[in-house]
Each structure stands twice: as structure tokens, then as C-alpha cells.
Nucleic acid binder design. Structure first.
Length: 338
DNA sequence: GTTGAGCGTT
């Protein structure tokens, strides 16, 4: 069986795959294979297209993008639990799941929350598109008490595609606290919205960068802090979501629920690339930052200081001195658990 | 059941 599969002619090999004989192969046997065809589709209900792999069994994102312009990744439905899983992507190379590509149908991911929008861009085959125009959440100040998230969405949708709105409410009463957040798909929309005041339900409102955002100091860690997670996001869903960026080796959600989580990647570069990002999981905007606090002055210096210094120390339990000489030299300062 | 500058999460 193995000898047959090893036959160098790619076309014959593809035939074997199509006939389903590959199902008997182990992952190690797959590793010896030269080329196969992976079934890919934009929609699970559509007819898949076959895309060639590389000789080492990986699939180039550029190969996918050649057929699906704008593609930024792949996902597939896990036959065991029916959940969608992301395909590992490292530097433009898609890696097969543990059991090989198999005869699963893979679904193309597009940037911007999986919504295909390449028809209104230049159509240049992607990869870069994903982070080229990075938007961030904007705080909306001065909202009338009565304004709902639907109201916000309706209003801001007149400027461009909205990917997230929030109205901050009192946990007990559910009453609005008079401010919220909005996130747009396109950076141009964000710029426009920030450039003017907004009459919303009879009050003038302002959209600004939230104070909670600051330049993120690089720290060499595989673990990221994920803030603003909601209780309905399960550890498994977190894992599946973040797997689109790289292999996830651990997910930790404190109990009782505290609205944050930790995600550890196999590759520290993947972790670092996500720091500072606002990502949207199940419609919830979460913020990724370093697992170890950066400069606590973020909390102390900005916005009049929501917390006292001692309180900030209580939160973190420890405090890295980012003004220390070693930080200025950018020597790696590893958290104790790293 | 009120209010009107701020700031989501360690």
C-alpha cells in the first residue's frame, strides 16, 4: 500500500486519493507522500474545488488564494464534535491536522470576520490584507440613557460596516452607563467617525480611542491575556478560535468567571503578533495583550487614574519595572510560569 | 425610579 502511494506520478496519486484509499494511511505515512489534492470550498454546501498540496504535505496559502482571492486561512468541521476547527497557518503555510488532510472539505476563511469583501477591494491576493488596515474599538461617550445597542448599530451603520457595538450597562439594573464601544470593518470608516461629533437620540456624542489602549511593549512569551471574554465563550471555543493563528497549547479561564482568559501558543511569535489586537469571537470584542502586565502606568497615568497604585499591584500580584535598564535593552524578561 | 464626565479587562 505504501509503495503504491509513494509512486511519484502526482496524477496517479491524486486518483488514489479520490478513490478514498488513503483512509488506511497513518499520519507518518502521509508525511512520506509527495502531493495530494485537498478539497476546498467557500461554503460547506457548495461543490468543493481540489487544490494541490506541496510535496511535504503542506498547502500554501498562496495556492488557496490563487483560487479564492483574498483567502487568509482554512477551517474544517471536526467530525468528532461537529465544531469548526482552524487549520494551522505559519508564515503562509497551511499544515494538515494530526490525521492528515483526509477527505474532509475545508472552508476558506476571509479577513474581517469571515465576511467576503474582496469584491470591493483591489482583489490582490491577500495574506497581507488581514492586518494592513487594522481597526480598533472606539469608545462612544455621551450616549443618552435610552440608547440601545441596536440604536447604536443602526446609527453607525450609516458610516460603514459595523462589526461590534456595546452599550455598557450596570450589572444589576441593566441601565446604560451612558457610554459604549463601536468597531468598524474599515479603517476609513473609523477615521471618518472619529473626525466628527454625533447626534444620537438627541445628544451629542464623541468617538475616541479608549484610554485602555496603549503601545504594547514586547515581551517574549507564548501566553497572552485575553480580556473582555464573556461567560458564554467556552475554553474549547477559545481554543478553536485562536487556532487560526497558530497551535494553541493551553487555554485557561479562571473560575469563578472573571471576564478574562489566558491562551498559550506553541509559538511565541504567534502570541506576540496578536498582542494589542481586538478580536471578535462570537460577536464579542476581546482584547489580547501580554499575559504579564506591561507598564502599570497605563492605569495610573491615563484618564485620571481609575485605580490607585496599590490596587494595581493587587491586581497583578507583581510588577515588572519597564523603566529598568534591562527592559530598555529589550532583554527578555520572562514571567515565572513561562 | 436619580445622573452627564468618563473608559472595557489582569
Amino acid at each position: 500500500m505504501l509503495e503504491r502511494v509513494r509512486a511519484p506520478a502526482g496524477r496517479e496519486l491524486a486518483t488514489a486519493v479520490l478513490c478514498g484509499r488513503h483512509n488506511a494511511l497513518s499520519p507518518s505515512q502521509w508525511a512520506t507522500m509527495e502531493m495530494e489534492y485537498i478539497r476546498i470550498t467557500e461554503d460547506e454546501n457548495d461543490e468543493p474545488m481540489e487544490i494541490p498540496s506541496e510535496d511535504d504535505g503542506t498547502v500554501l496559502l498562496s495556492t488557496v488564494a490563487a483560487q479564492f482571492p483574498g483567502a487568509c486561512g482554512l477551517r474544517y468541521r471536526n467530525p468528532v464534535n461537529q465544531c469548526m476547527r482552524g487549520v494551522r497557518l505559519v508564515e503562509g503555510i497551511l499544515h494538515a491536522p494530526e490525521s492528515g488532510w483526509g477527505n474532509l472539505v475545508y472552508v476558506v476563511n476571509y479577513p474581517k470576520d469571515n465576511k467576503r469583501k474582496m469584491d470591493e477591494s483591489d482583489g490582490s491576493s491577500a495574506v497581507k490584507v488581514k492586518r494592513a488596515v487594522k481597526t480598533s474599538d472606539l469608545i462612544v461617550l455621551g450616549l443618552p440613557w435610552k440608547t440601545t445597542e441596536q440604536d447604536l448599530k443602526d446609527y453607525f451603520s450609516t458610516f460603514g460596516e459595523v462589526v461590534m457595538v456595546q452599550v455598557k450597562k450596570d450589572a444589576k439594573t441593566g441601565n446604560s452607563k451612558g457610554f459604549g464601544f463601536v468597531r468598524f470593518t474599515d479603517y476609513e470608516t473609523q477615521v471618518k467617525v472619529m473626525s466628527q461629533r454625533h447626534m444620537i437620540d438627541g445628544r451629542w456624542c464623541d468617538c475616541k480611542f479608549p484610554n485602555s489602549k496603549g503601545p504594547d511593549e514586547p515581551v517574549h512569551s507564548r501566553k497572552v491575556f485575553v480580556g473582555r471574554v464573556t461567560e458564554d465563550i467556552s475554553p474549547d471555543e477559545l481554543r478553536q478560535f485562536f487556532t487560526q493563528y497558530g497551535e494553541v497549547v493551553d487555554v485557561f479561564i479562571p473560575k469563578p468567571f472573571r471576564a478574562f482568559a489566558f491562551v498559550t501558543f506553541a509559538d511565541d511569535q504567534v502570541a506576540q503578533s496578536l498582542c494589542g489586537e481586538d478580536l471578535i469571537i462570537k460577536g464579542v470584542s476581546v482584547h489580547v495583550s501580554n499575559a504579564e502586565p506591561k507598564n502599570n502606568s497605563r492605569y495610573l497615568d491615563r484618564g485620571g487614574g481609575r485605580f490607585g497604585g496599590n490596587l494595581a499591584l493587587q491586581f497583578h500580584g507583581s510588577c515588572w519595572n519597564y523603566n529598568s535598564p534591562q527592559m530598555k535593552m529589550r532583554l527578555p524578561v520572562l514571567p515565572p510560569w513561562y
